[in-house]
């Protein structure tokens, strides 16, 4: 896995990172930020559950950047490092993760790794803990987590080293009404 950017920043003065590289296509960058902000701004599903899925994706895809970022909203909902430490193989036996969180993790694994994991009891558990609307939102989020983590890695945008960093949660883009 390369930590040397394979694509340059399209924003003068900024280093190569996902946002500055996507800026080779400004509309694409802007639409991703809109979508990601709307996703994190929605409260249909808690930020805590979204962050748990995001962290599982970070570990499975080996995205070091994703793994070291924390979003404020999930931290504010009480998601601490002691719980995040259990989002590793064998999470099924964790005493810190709730049953709903384990169901979200199993769904995440099925979507990003092996669809056969979402059969029988795992499917029942997911549908017990999450509504259809919540599953739709989570499914879209996991799709974005997976796609953007893989795009980031393949474009060589992984940091060589990175401290754990709490970032402001992406927010919906506010635009002035135009009429």
């Amino acid at each position: 896995m390369s930590t040397t950017p394979r694509a340059s920043s399209a924003i003068p003065g900024e280093p190569a990172h996902l946002g500055s590289v996507l800026a080779h296509h400004p509309e694409l960058a802007s639409q991703f930020m809109d979508l990601y902000g709307t996703f994190w701004g929605s409260d249909v599903l808690s930020a805590r559950l979204k962050e748990i899925a995001r962290m599982r994706n970070a570990r499975v895809t080996e995205c070091g950047f994703c793994r070291n970022v924390r979003f404020e909203k999930a931290v504010g909902e009480g998601l601490g490092e002691d719980v995040l430490d259990d989002i590793t193989d064998g999470y099924e036996t964790s005493g810190k993760l709730t049953d709903a969180e384990k169901a979200v993790l199993k769904f995440t694994d099925a979507l990003i790794f092996d669809p056969d994991l979402l059969t029988g009891d795992a499917r029942v558990a997911l549908q017990k803990h999450l509504s259809a609307e919540q599953i739709a939102e989570l499914g879209m989020g996991i799709t974005l987590f997976l796609a953007l983590a893989k795009a980031l890695i393949t474009m060589g945008l992984e940091p060589e080293t990175m401290e754990r960093t709490v970032l402001p949660t992406p927010e919906p883009v506010q635009r002035e009404a135009t009429e």
Binding site: A7, L111, A136, T143
Partner: peptide, 22 residues
């Protein structure tokens, strides 16, 4: 290249979403 990386990664994620019948 940037567009290709995003399109290929999104295609992979969408195939996986289809395989769990999202």
């Amino acid at each position: 290249y940037v567009a290709l990386s995003v399109v290929a990664a999104l295609a992979d994620a969408e195939c996986r979403a289809a395989m769990v019948d999202l």
